[in-house]
């Protein structure tokens, strides 16, 4: 193989490997765009949570902890919330999924979703606790609950998109 081809090959590989993290970044940006739908503004789902769960579970090699941390900080900044909370929650989800990979991997899609229902609940509770402690205010859990339900409901379509991406574009683990 000549050097140019080798370089192109490596660039191609790098682009493919970076796709999950970059896609998550894009989803966070899209989640920030004001949709101006009544009542939707406060219950926008957490795409980052879905993405970090999915990629940690099925392709942990492409969603390492530093990437999760970076995505979390990015989410915090764009959302205007206190810095570090999103990073902490996403890292906790990342860590929790890593310990449960053997239970959840290579199972039907529904099992993955079921796992997400539990992990996301823990993530949202953790987020609520962190916000409550940081701002010393008891937040109304209703808005967060709505957001949780939306996120869980959106998991199947978003995950299906990730599965298609994994088959068509990403290299084997």
């Amino acid at each position: 193989m000549n050097p140019v081809d080798a370089l192109l090959d490596r660039l191609d590989a790098a682009a493919r490997d970076a796709t999950p993290a970059l896609l998550t970044l894009a989803l966070i940006v899209i989640g920030t765009v004001p949709l101006r739908l009544p009542e939707f503004a406060t219950i926008i789902p957490s795409f980052a949570l879905i993405a970090v769960y999915f990629w940690t579970l099925y392709r942990a090699d492409l969603m390492p902890a530093p990437a999760v941390f970076g995505l979390g900080v990015f989410q915090d900044i764009l959302g205007g919330g206190p810095l570090g909370v999103g990073a902490f929650v996403l890292l906790a989800v990342h860590g929790a999924v890593l310990t449960q990979r053997r239970v959840l991997m290579r199972r039907p899609f529904a099992v993955g979703w079921f796992g997400f229902v539990g992990v996301a609940l823990a993530g949202f509770v953790l987020n609520w606790l962190a916000m409550t402690v940081l701002s010393l205010t008891l937040f109304d859990p209703l808005a967060a609950s709505m957001q949780y339900v939306m996120t869980v409901a959106l998991y199947p379509p978003v995950a299906a998109m990730f599965v298609a991406l994994q088959r068509a574009w990403l290299r084997g683990a």
């Binding site: 206190p82 990073a87 906790a92």
Partner: peptide, 21 residues
């Protein structure tokens, strides 16, 4: 190394919360 990185990043997140405060 992976575990250490993970814990380090978790600590960094907490550090960011305090820094932001």
């Amino acid at each position: 190394v992976q575990r250490f990185t993970f814990l380090l990043l978790l600590a960094a997140a907490v550090g960011l919360m305090l820094l932001g405060k």
